[in-house]
Simulated assay, not measured.
Amino acid sequence: MRKYKPITGGVYLVLDPSMDKPLLLQKVREALDGGASVLQIWNNWPTGYTYSDKLLLIQELVDLAAAYQVPVLVNEEWQLLKDTELAGVHFDSIPEDFESIKAAVGRDFICGITCSNNLEVVRWAEERQLDYVSFCAVFPSPSAGNCELVQPDTIREARKITQLPLFLSGGITTENIDKLQELDFNGVAVISGILNAASAQKSTAAYKDALNKYKV
């Protein structure tokens, strides 16, 4: 299997596979050049996409990220780990039988989970020593879907529960990240702020600079 840098924080880029494929690959390459530390393929596949189509895109993304030792995760669809070199999976909620999933995958893999204001999710992640927790959403955002707004106190309490890397997501820009500076977190998860930018490289680098300036 490929070697990846451990997830410790930084810019976590969520990829929208429904984008035009050549454009998506270009944006990913730019974001990696800008310093993205994690990639996640959102399960927003184009209509009519087959399993083989998914495998092909995943392989292209894994190959692209390999030169940077950046892990590529998939959203929810852990079964894809069995047929690809994906580094891991991101769950939107606590899976029903995590032990069975680990057995079915049959190899080590990175695992993270989304949390809103339910600290039981953080406790679950800590008990099973997942690789990170991502909070959604700290600001209103169209791409955050149905995520409820996370209260700052939730993030403060989460840090008392775990020392796992904490990512914040939802409506975060390089302009409003300073509003989060009193919180103890490790990185930000971004979709449109990078994918829709004129230069994904410059946008990613700007997020990195903002993180280095403001995060605790």
Rank of each mutant, 00 (worst) to 15 (best):
A189Q: 04
R159N: 01
K213E: 12
A198Q: 15
T114W: 11
L80G: 08
L180C: 08
Q40E: 12
I94N: 12
C115F: 00
N186Y: 11
A200H: 11
A158N: 05
N118E: 15
E99M: 13
K179P: 08
R107H: 13
E96N: 07
P140T: 11
A66P: 01
D153N: 08
L55V: 15
G193Y: 05
N118D: 15
I113D: 01
D153P: 02
L61T: 09
D209M: 12
G35D: 01
N44V: 09
V70C: 09
S37D: 06
D97F: 05
A36S: 14
E85F: 14
C111T: 02
P17H: 03
L73T: 01
W124C: 07
L61F: 11
D20A: 09
S192P: 07
L119K: 01
D20S: 12
G34I: 04
D83E: 15
V11K: 00
T50M: 10
G112E: 00
V122N: 12
L39K: 13
L15N: 06
T114C: 09
A87C: 06
Q181F: 02
W42C: 06
Y51L: 13
V70P: 02
V62A: 10
D178H: 13
M1L: 14
T174E: 12
L81Y: 14
N75S: 14
Y49K: 11
A198I: 15
L195I: 04
N146W: 03
L32Q: 06
V138K: 11
L164D: 02
Q151K: 15
R128C: 04
D53M: 11
I155N: 05
I113M: 09
P152R: 15
V62N: 04
A200W: 06
A197D: 10
P17F: 06
Q201W: 10
C147Y: 01
L81T: 12
N186D: 14
M1Y: 13
L57D: 06
V14N: 11
E175G: 05
V74F: 10
E96L: 12
L119F: 09
W78P: 00
E120L: 14
I155Q: 00
N196G: 08
L32Y: 10
L168C: 05
N117Q: 03
I155K: 03
N176P: 00
N186V: 03
I172H: 04
Q163H: 13
L81K: 13
S93L: 10
D83I: 05
L13Q: 05
A200Y: 03
Q163A: 14
F185R: 09
L25E: 15
P152N: 13
Q59A: 09
R128Q: 02
C136H: 13
L119I: 07
Y49D: 05
K27Q: 09
E148D: 12
G48Q: 08
K208V: 09
